[in-house]
Design a protein around this nucleic acid. Sequence first.
RNA 1: GGGGUCGUAGUGCAGCUCGGUUUAACACGCCUGCCUGUCACGCAGGAGAUCGCGGGUUCAAAUCCCGUCGACCCCGCCA
Length: 449
Amino acid sequence: MGRKLKKDMLMKRTEISQLKLNINNSTKIQGWIQSIRDKGKIQFIVIRDHSGTVQAILERAENPGLADVIAKLTSETAVTVVGKVCENPHVKMGGIEIQLKELHVENHSESPLPYDLFGKIKPELDFRINWRYLDLRIPENNLIFKVQTLIEMSMREFWIKDGFIEIHSPKLMGTPSESGAELFKVPYFEKTAYLAQSPQFYKQMAMAAGFNKVFEIGPVFRANPSFTSRHDTEFTSVDVEISWIDSHEDIMSFEEKWIKYILLKIKENFGKEIFAKFGVEVEVPDIPFPRISMKEAIKILQKEGYSLPTENKEDLDPNGERLLCKFIKEKYNHDFIFLTDYPVSVRPFYHMRHSSNSLLTKSFDLLWKGLEITTGAQREHRYKVLAQQALEKGLHLEPIQFYLDFFKHGCPPHGGFGFGLTRMLMILLNIKNVREVTFIYRGPNRLFP
RNA sequence: GGGGUCGUAGUGCAGCUCGGUUUAACACGCCUGCCUGUCACGCAGGAGAUCGCGGGUUCAAAUCCCGUCGACCCCGCCA
């Protein structure tokens, strides 16, 4: 290796998306071999990095030694490449190509790959998850997590402008947090601890602590053996809790503004790319979102000829939710619905009840295009009422006494919601399975990778 | 926990109903060779499958029967 080439290899890396600014310059790029078209006397390779792809070319006569190296390359090998960036209108891939001067294999890729990453037919998701690190190299999958990053940033921007405090609640708990979900038990010295299924108790504690408004983005764990395309045993929950509210209406009016802001940011920054890669137009919703009480919803569904499963007359099943969203879309041209005022029977003990109707809670779910993405409510903050409601639900007070205590010394009226981040991604990108929008999926049958 | 569908090369699938011309086909990927402008490159050749596992019926089983294991999807539960 001559002195000049060595120096080339030490130059700063250029992202492939920036190559058009380096026309006629010697440039270094780093990425993966996406395809090799070796014509013998002339060789073409396509190199991909996180920002794009580019074709590189070598005429064998120019550098036979290098040509031999290229002849032995395998798909997805990680390489460093130096060459001259040239304009060439014949090249379909962006009209530019790199004339190779040097190529260094950083990490050879075993051949064959478990599957053809860029083939026409994808293997089943379950198989691809076995090779998640390869699957995530596909630009579409990469985009999912770029979008997720901006979603979380936009959420935080909105909260922080609005004076929220971020909390990090413990994931090891001494008692269930009573969301109705089942629990993972873990040995904890001589005791048993539970993995948090929700930060519910602690975000309410923050209200008692005078934090005014809080949010948390963090993991939650559900031990339900749920075999569906929209459940996992560990997922990222987005939680909000707000003090000094008058009713759950205050929570809903916060959430719709917050969602509108997030979707606006996504549209501005990724709208085109999302449309190109997923075929979905990102729509920024009008506010307020339609609000429909459970009672009205059931009436509408009955009128539409849909009968709910007999054992569950007070709640909607997923089919009912989808149908209701379809109805609202047709009638009000809106993709979101707040479903409000759920009956006591299907809500946890800490949801506040209407003073005018003790059978209904001051609660809501938010449905987006047929999928439930939020559950929220005003919380019961009066100690005696709360304890009474817990007893009515058949709970023992001792294990939750620490929680009940939060309401003994001047806890303000408050409410909040939990929001499913992966479910938002599913709807936003029209992806039918949570596993695909989860970096590393965890489910009843999946503890690896 | 209840129900449904499905297990055939690395991947995606055909064949299974009606057992035997099946030496289990096809596509992508992979390997070898050829090709100086490819870009879903092309051309010629090649390797790769104890048909999920166990048992049974039969002269004969990928195919029929019984059992078993696994995965996925729907319901329930929930974000």
